[in-house]
């Protein structure tokens, strides 16, 4: 999959005639590519556009402009009907396992639904497949007659994963799949996702704000801030040699589970993320960047590099 100059603007409307007075630039000119079988992590703070990017890739949001090329087709411009056919290859797992399952449907019906909707199997075949998939994600097949409320958060997330797998997708967008879960359950779900990737040769886009989980699962990481990509590189590179000041600060802000390191030196950035309706001029991070110079306030830095891409006028030296 290749994403080119993806933009998603939400208009801000005011007054009785709903005049558009401005735009919230949720995703602003994002380009990257994803190779088969790899996991790309999207990280950033809330409001950085990571979820909107994920949703735009499967047309849950219609992008304002840009291209999303998947197996030679541009998902951003094809018709709804064509998109519907392609949905079998593109699935999404949502953050909240409590609200993403219909409470009035049995698990078996929930899981069989995608197969029947795409007319890919008869009812009997679908039932067979449901049994199999439940076992694949580590649940008993006897659960298929139960309702979602009978399950814990971790189990529901497994059901969400099972539902995404029903159609044998090629690419799964995982939108904060473990953020709502307890730590001991998080580890179970992360391991499951890793195992399934190997088994079915899946490609993941893993969206999260917890860097630990992202590091654990991703091959490459994209760091976003205010709708723009700040840095993109192999996981190891990002953690060992972060080059963008924002990445460095983000890594540094995570509390380390080691009390002997509590007195380490820490750069704490001041202030909040600016509103995406009025992003700062020039580099979007300049208002909080400790190294900001005049040029950062004027000129938007380009995303440069071959393997290790970075958008900064003054990248940190190795």
């Amino acid at each position: 999959m290749e994403v080119k100059n993806l933009k998603k603007y939400y208009p801000i409307k005011k007054g009785i005639i709903s005049k558009t007075v401005g735009y919230v630039k949720a995703v602003d000119d994002v380009s990257f590519s994803i190779y088969p079988g790899e996991t790309v992590g999207l990280v950033g703070e809330s409001g950085c556009g990571k979820s909107t990017t994920g949703r735009s890739l499967v047309r849950l949001e219609d992008p304002t402009s840009g291209q999303v090329i998947f197996e030679g087709k541009d998902l951003a411009s094809i018709s709804k009907k064509e998109m519907r056919e392609l949905r079998t290859d593109l699935q999404i797992i949502f953050q909240d396992p409590y609200s993403s399952l219909n409470p009035r449907k049995r698990i078996g019906d929930l899981l069989a639904e995608p197969l029947l909707a795409h007319k890919l199997a008869s009812k009997a075949e679908a039932a067979e497949k449901v049994n199999h998939i439940l076992e694949t994600v580590g649940l008993s097949k006897h659960y298929k007659n139960r309702y979602p409320h009978e399950f814990s958060g971790g189990q529901r997330q497994r059901i969400g994963i099972a539902r995404a797998l029903m159609l044998h997708p090629k690419l799964i967008i995982c939108d904060e799949p473990v953020s709502a879960l307890d730590v001991s359950i998080q580890a179970q779900v992360l391991n499951l996702l890793k195992d399934l990737q190997k088994e079915f040769n899946l490609t993941y886009i893993f969206i999260a704000h917890g860097l630990g989980a992202v590091k654990y699962i991703s091959d490459r990481i994209t760091v976003m801030y205010l709708g723009k990509i700040m840095e993109m590189a192999k996981t190891k590179e990002i953690f060992e040699h972060p080059m963008h000041p924002y990445t460095e600060i983000l890594l540094n802000a995570y509390p380390v589970p080691n009390p002997h390191m509590r007195d380490r030196e820490q750069i704490v950035v001041e202030g909040d993320v600016p509103s995406p309706a009025h992003p700062p001029k020039g580099c979007v991070f300049h208002t909080r960047c400790p190294f900001a110079k005049d040029i950062c306030r004027e000129k938007v830095p380009e995303l440069n590099g071959t393997d290790h891409l970075i958008a900064c006028h003054f990248p940190l030296s190795q």
């Binding site: 814990s152 971790g154 189990q155 307890d182 730590v183 001991s184 359950i185 998080q186 580890a187 179970q188 992360l190 391991n191 917890g210 860097l211 630990g212 989980a213 590091k215 654990y216 996981t235 190891k236 953690f239 890594l251 995570y254 380390v256 589970p257 080691n258």
Partner: peptide, 24 residues
């Protein structure tokens, strides 16, 4: 179990997370 199941950025690369089976 809790200590071993946190994915942390200081963990070595290929370490597999140990999870606590079951739920509360």
């Amino acid at each position: 179990g809790l200590m071993k199941s946190i994915p942390h950025i200081t963990n070595p690369d290929d370490m597999r997370l140990e999870s606590i089976p079951g739920s509360v």
